[in-house]
Simulated scan of single mutants.
Amino acid sequence: MADSQQEPEDGLLGRVQSLVRAFGILDELAKSDNMTLSDLSRAVGLPRSTTHRLLTTMEALRYVAFDRRRNGWSIGVQAFTVGAVFAQTRDLGQLGRTIMRSLMSEVQHCVNIAVPEGAGVCYVGQAAANGFRQTAARPGAVLPLHTTASGKVLMAQWSRAEVDRYLGSAPLKARTARSIIDGDRLRRELADISMRGYALDDEEHSDGLRCVAAVVNDRYGLPKGSLSISDRSSHLPRARLDELGPALISAAQRMSMEIAAQSF
């Protein structure tokens, strides 16, 4: 028997269609400072009535604004807020570049910065040592949380309920023979990370690569990203990961302070 709470397929498709149309309107408004209803409806290829209905909904959510003096529509404050947060997050790699380069010179290993991205982490900056660029963590790459030091150090900041939801969403997939794919073992690993302040990736994501990561916080003390040191296993022995941990935590704290200073 079908679930009585399940939304009819045509209703779901209608919602998706409305969402696509709303994003189309935002795209057009982003190209112009002010557009009339007629100009906007022509630009997106929708009837005036449909365009007006979508605009009034987005206006109530503050994603668009209506200027009655000019009788035109423009991007609203909420869309700006979302865009500003995105820009600030992606600028993290640039903001911390001086610290990353300093750390790279100190440790002579590749230094990376990553931010949360859905169910993974997205690498947004990298400072390479001795010409070696860690291709797995190249800027723009999105890697799993549970197989990377950058991901695990962020997960260690989660509540127990958040970890449970993550583990219940899909089975953990192995990337190497060392990947942690058992939920209870991952919970113990996150508890250890929380206590020592940094996370390790001992060839868990890629054979022949090791990494250590520490969390970078925003001005409110909430996790914003992760700073990591990585290199080939032949250049980065397992014992050195723990030696690098304190220096990495110190650099991540300096980056957090820089972020807080830039936020005002």
Rank of each mutant, 00 (worst) to 15 (best):
Q6Y: 14
E9V: 13
G14Q: 11
V16T: 03
S32G: 03
M35R: 07
L37Q: 09
L40Y: 06
A43L: 04
V44M: 09
G45F: 14
P47H: 05
P47W: 04
R48H: 13
H52V: 00
L55N: 02
R62T: 12
R62A: 15
F66M: 04
D67Y: 08
D67N: 14
R68E: 15
R70S: 14
N71F: 15
W73C: 04
Q78N: 11
Q78V: 03
F80P: 00
A84W: 03
V85Y: 10
G96P: 11
L103D: 02
M104H: 05
S105K: 07
Q108M: 12
A114P: 01
P116H: 03
V121P: 01
G125L: 03
F132G: 08
A137V: 02
G151R: 00
G151I: 02
K152A: 09
K152C: 06
K152H: 09
V153C: 09
L154N: 01
M155A: 07
A156K: 01
W158A: 08
W158C: 06
S159P: 03
A161D: 15
E162W: 01
E162D: 14
D164N: 10
D164C: 04
L167H: 04
S169Y: 12
A174Y: 06
R185T: 12
R187Y: 07
R188Q: 15
R188C: 12
A191F: 14
D192T: 03
M195N: 06
G197H: 07
G197Q: 08
Y198L: 01
A199R: 01
L200V: 06
E203A: 13
L209K: 02
V212M: 04
A214N: 07
G221C: 07
L222R: 13
L227T: 01
H235W: 13
R240V: 09
R240F: 14
L241F: 12
D242E: 13
G245F: 11
P246M: 05
Q253W: 08
R254P: 01
A261S: 13
A261T: 06
Q262N: 12
